[in-house]
Design a protein around this nucleic acid. Structure first.
Lengths: 338, 338
DNA sequence: TTGTATGCGTTATCAT
DNA sequence: ATGATAACGCATACAA
């Protein structure tokens, strides 16, 4: 049964509970032979340490919180799965906590959470990562955390990220290589750091190829489907509309695609559309979207690992970790019609 | 700060810790005036009970697990948010645990989870709810649980559900009223109970209106986009194809829509398409999908409430709870072309 | 209605 | 390298 305690193990192995504790926690200074004895007893009794007791006696709870404030289910699921993967590998539990990243009570709310559940640390996802007051509050309270794709990339705090800027540059380049010169761009929500990075990549690619940034072809979106739709209405109503639209999220790209259909504009023959994120919609839209795959799951797994390393007091790894994005070409982009 | 203990509160209020405990746990037999004294002290010290200590000393951990094995991010998010809503209201934490509903090691895996994290109970989502061996195992181990939309609807276990059968019947009726008589149907994954319920609703509506169930227009899908696409290929290749297709999930309906586009079939003019679930794709497809909205969030919130009531030992509410589905008509359905 | 004393299963301190 | 024992913060018989 799972009811065996450390005392039972100690008795069966013929050692003290402290020695069992050493083995369980992989502490040094245990003779190989005793370690094996203890491990055998643990296996035999199917012993599992009581997390509550560990938490009460020790300084750690082996519980981490994942904070999110993000409207995209697939992003959350990926972030969750990545963190979970790392946590269970390291023997930690993950407590998820949706919240409003701009709530005035966010600090108090999270403090309650951390204190109440005795969390050892937090994993932050965008755009919470970029709420400066909140992050400063965590620092001040001494609450450990790591971030997924944060804006602030200073050395102190651990984080995992990918190069949105470079990826957007590559996507824009892809469109340029196809022969497009009038390339529209739809911005994301201004509170997200990725919004600015992606736009910067778009600008860089144009400039690298001697093209000017066509300000009238750049519209302010918000990462949502409806936002993308509204921007597409504007862009496609222009006397001289773009031959390609790079929407900086797949949901917005989906909005562009639908708007084009409604106007009888054929994709990709008359209009190329590119997205960003590779959410499920990217393969479910018609035509399927050329997009950028962000390694969300890998990033959050890494963020969890970095956080746990920090909780453990070791910091063998660098506190920042970069992962690659991937350009995925599907059917929504092609050379412009002559 | 949040470091105050029950002793501090007792000292400040001039009572014993047992009295503080009574107030915190809302036990009876406390004089109004003492209760207020204690509450004042709690507020003053910003006291929060230590969950680990509560868990260790008592029988409860105030932690619930949410099990899922479901490919739809939006379903998971809704289920999660619903449970979370109820949990935080009741002072419980929610530990999420993705798993493989048909893994041979599922029982052992969950046992470890429950024992290790001292979970007070589990919330099951489909199709885990319908793994008979697993559910029997939980019963045998005395692990408390509640279910969201389970197949087995016996009295013993608490669950929340909605009437998939009725909703499917209503959708089919909607299509019949529009004038369709050749209505195709795409089945979901056979392991999901909802699959059979929805099909039963489809059949019932046809029969109620004196129509035969056209077996050649019923195809086996699996709830996924690609599954829906494959079925649509078959249905639309028929010499005498249906004028409407009721896909029993939105993802499959999305596959139908894309397949139709690829073949130049206009929706809804030449083909009506209906889905089920009202996932984000339903509003992001072109045209937007007529579908059924399932109250996933409300169901899982209710399931959590029922579970917590059971954990607390009270069962004032009935252990089953039914919520309504909603037919949502959008642009993908219309009267058939004459 | 209120208080006292014991134990929950660990970790950690200090010995040995 | 290993062990005895005191916390950890609370719930809960049991008393008063």
């Amino acid at each position: 049964m799972g009811k065996a305690t450390i005392d039972d193990v100690a008795a069966l192995a013929g050692v003290s509970i402290k020695t069992v504790s050493r083995v369980v926690n992989k502490e040094p200074n245990v003779r190989k032979s005793t370690q094996e004895k203890v491990e055998k007893a643990i296996a035999e009794l199917n012993y599992r340490p009581n997390q509550s007791a560990r938490s009460l006696a020790g300084s750690r709870s082996f519980l981490i919180g994942l904070l999110y404030s993000n409207p995209s289910p697939s992003y959350i699921i990926n972030a969750q799965n990545g963190s979970l993967e790392a946590c269970s590998q390291e023997g930690f539990g993950l407590l998820i906590h949706p919240c409003d990243y701009q709530s005035p009570d966010l600090c108090e709310e999270i403090l309650q959470l951390v204190r109440g559940s005795r969390l050892d640390g937090l994993i932050l996802t965008p755009p919470i990562t970029d709420n400066r007051d909140f992050v400063a509050f965590l620092d001040q309270e001494g609450i450990l955390y790591s971030s997924v794709a944060p804006m602030e990339r200073s050395a102190g705090i651990p984080f995992a990220y990918c190069d949105d800027r470079l990826a957007a540059e590559q996507m824009t380049e892809h469109l340029i290589r196809l022969g497009h010169t009038r390339i529209g761009f739809i911005l994301g929500h201004p509170d997200h750091f990725a919004t600015h990075e992606r736009y910067a990549g778009y600008q860089a690619a144009l400039e690298n190829h001697g093209l000017k940034v066509p300000k009238n072809l750049v519209k302010q979106g918000d990462f949502t489907f409806n936002g993308g739709k509204a921007c597409a209405e504007k862009l496609l109503s222009l006397k001289n509309p773009p031959t390609a639209i790079f929407a900086s999220s797949d949901y917005m790209a989906g909005g562009v695609v639908v708007t084009a259909h409604e106007r009888g504009i054929k994709i990709p023959q008359q209009l190329s559309v590119a997205g960003f994120d590779d959410v499920p919609l990217a393969t479910q839209a018609w035509p399927a979207l050329t997009t950028i795959r962000q390694p969300v799951q890998a990033m959050s797994a890494k963020a969890a690992q970095l956080l746990i390393a920090r909780i453990r007091g070791k910091s063998p790894e660098p506190s920042r970790y970069k992962l690659p994005c991937e350009l995925i070409t599907r059917d929504s982009t092609a050379a412009p019609q002559p």
